[in-house]
């Protein structure tokens, strides 16, 4: 199924993502990594730290509501796969980002901006296996 190429919306949305990452480092001194923020929500040793993470996630969930106020529709979340595939994919992502120490935001947006070698390796690796996975699932297995 084709999706429309949206260069300007994606550039603009990306710029906001970058702005959020910059603000979190400038104001709070933290990396904006969804993995780290979500993972920390399940550690309870530091209540002040927990509150900041919870606020970030509540704020993130508010983003689509602002989008809805501005456009009248919620963002599209089209998952063209079975529920079983969603669960398997979610579990694999959860294990992978935990061991890899980050995801697209932490390694891809923040790590690369800092010039971190670990993040360069991580980003190149997950981009490559994602392309291989989609190619194999759609055109080798699904063909």
């Amino acid at each position: 199924m084709e999706t429309e190429f949206t260069p300007w919306a994606s550039l603009g949305g990306g710029a906001l993502i970058g702005l959020a990452a910059t603000l979190l480092m400038l104001l709070h001194g933290r990396v904006f990594g969804a993995t780290g923020i979500l993972g920390g929500l399940f550690r309870f040793n530091d209540p002040a730290d927990w509150a900041v993470r919870a606020a970030l996630i509540v704020g993130m969930a508010g983003g689509p509501l602002v989008f809805w106020l501005a456009t009248g529709v919620m963002p599209v979340t089209d998952l063209p796969i079975s529920n079983l595939a969603v669960v398997i994919g979610g579990l694999i992502v959860g294990v992978g980002v935990s061991y890899g120490g980050g995801c697209t935001s932490g390694h891809g947006v923040c790590g690369l901006a800092r010039g971190s070698k670990r993040s360069m390796v991580a980003t190149a690796t997950f981009m490559t296996t994602a392309i291989l996975t989609v190619t194999i699932l759609r055109h080798v297995w699904g063909a």
Partner: peptide, 26 residues
């Protein structure tokens, strides 16, 4: 710090919504 984190999260969430990253098909 909580208010600041809320607003920063909001900017991120809006960016994700506009960018198409929340759309697995894309």
């Amino acid at each position: 710090r909580i208010l600041s984190a809320l607003l920063i999260g909001l900017v991120f969430g809006l960016g994700i919504s506009i960018s198409g990253m929340a759309n697995p098909a894309k």
